[in-house]
């Protein structure tokens, strides 16, 4: 089996999931310049809500992609409501406050959601039931599974859909205007509060899909799963250039591939001194590296801070 090709395929799949989460970070950051620490937790809630639904249906004997689809369809509105609530309760009152305030509030939301999830779903790892046959396909010495193909397809479609909404619709134009200058956008008749809320809505919807897909792909879910995922997706967003949609996509894929290649080769390159359990460290080092050498990211614009 071709290890290199295999790791690239796994990396692309993992990376496309990062990208989907990174979109939420990048859109919110683009419009209100806030790192939404709670975004990883929205993904976690999506995964666990999906899990509960899928478990119920699997217990009745239902199988196939329909079950997953229903899980996603329940997770999306749940996460959207959650995202909207977070924005309304924890961020909106602090929009004009000193910069430290919304950041502290954001970390508060993130921890609160983790603990609430632990109260609801318990602290143990929960297993996604096996509802898919998941056939495998061979290409050039590597294996790609049906789940992986579906993940790549869905993330591709969602990316394209997000781009169309942001670039081609009236809502998207209002979003871009609000990101550029909220007060002038307001003068032009844009309801900035509503635009910000819809940004959270879109990001949370994407997070819900990402959550269920992550759960289906890795087979487990837990109240802490959003933390590392969020950190990596944020790294992906920064790598691609925060605020840029295609940057999030590119950053996610790149991070996924590098991480998987690292996990595959790190041990043999260093004679076993550094094992694959350090692959999380790799992502973190990349974040530091990007911040040192190109803080605006691969596709971001270099700009000075707004006064």
């Amino acid at each position: 089996m071709d290890i290199f090709l295999q790791q690239v395929i796994n990396g692309l799949v993992q990376g496309s999931l990062y990208a989907l989460v990174a979109l939420g970070y990048t859109m919110v950051y683009g419009i209100i310049e806030l790192v939404n620490f709670a975004h990883g937790e929205v993904v976690m809630v999506g995964a666990l809500v999906g899990l509960s639904v899928i478990e119920r249906m699997a217990a009745r004997g239902d199988t196939g992609w329909g079950v997953i689809a229903i899980g996603v369809l329940v997770a999306i509105p749940s996460c959207m409501a959650l995202g909207l609530g977070i924005e309304r309760i924890a961020y909106r009152p602090l929009r004009k406050a000193p910069r430290l305030a919304p950041l502290i509030s954001a970390i508060g939301v993130s921890i609160a959601l983790q603990q609430l999830a632990a109260l609801i779903w318990g602290r143990n790892y929960l297993h996604y039931p096996d509802v898919l046959a998941n056939p495998q396909f061979h290409i050039g010495g590597a294996v790609i599974t049906q789940v992986q193909l579906v993940i790549l397809g869905i993330t591709g479609i969602l990316m394209l859909g997000t781009w169309v909404i942001v670039q081609k619709t009236a809502l998207g134009r209002a979003m871009r205007a609000s990101a550029q200058n909220p007060s002038v956008a307001g003068l032009m008749g844009v309801n900035v509060d509503r635009i910000i809320a819809s940004t959270f809505l879109m990001g949370s919807g994407l997070a819900a899909v990402a959550g269920v897909l992550v759960g289906t792909y890795y087979g487990v879910g837990n109240h802490t799963m959003g933390f590392m995922l969020g950190l990596k997706a944020f790294t992906a967003a920064v790598l691609g250039g925060i605020g840029s949609l295609w940057g999030a996509m590119l950053g996610g894929l790149l991070l996924g591939v590098i991480e998987n290649l690292g996990a595959g080769y790190l041990s043999s390159l260093t004679n076993g001194a550094i094992g694959s359990n350090y692959s999380d460290v790799l992502a973190f080092l990349m974040l530091i590296g990007v911040l040192i050498f190109r803080p605006s990211g691969l596709m971001g614009e270099r700009g000075s801070e707004k006064v």
Partner: peptide
């Protein structure tokens, strides 16, 4: 050093990551 020249948000997330990474080590 790498983050303090940038906006405060980056420091927050880098320190958060560092807190986890040091535990991995």
């Amino acid at each position: 050093a790498p983050t303090l020249g940038l906006r405060g948000d980056y420091l927050a997330i880098v320190t958060m990551g560092f807190g986890e990474i040091i535990r991995i080590f």
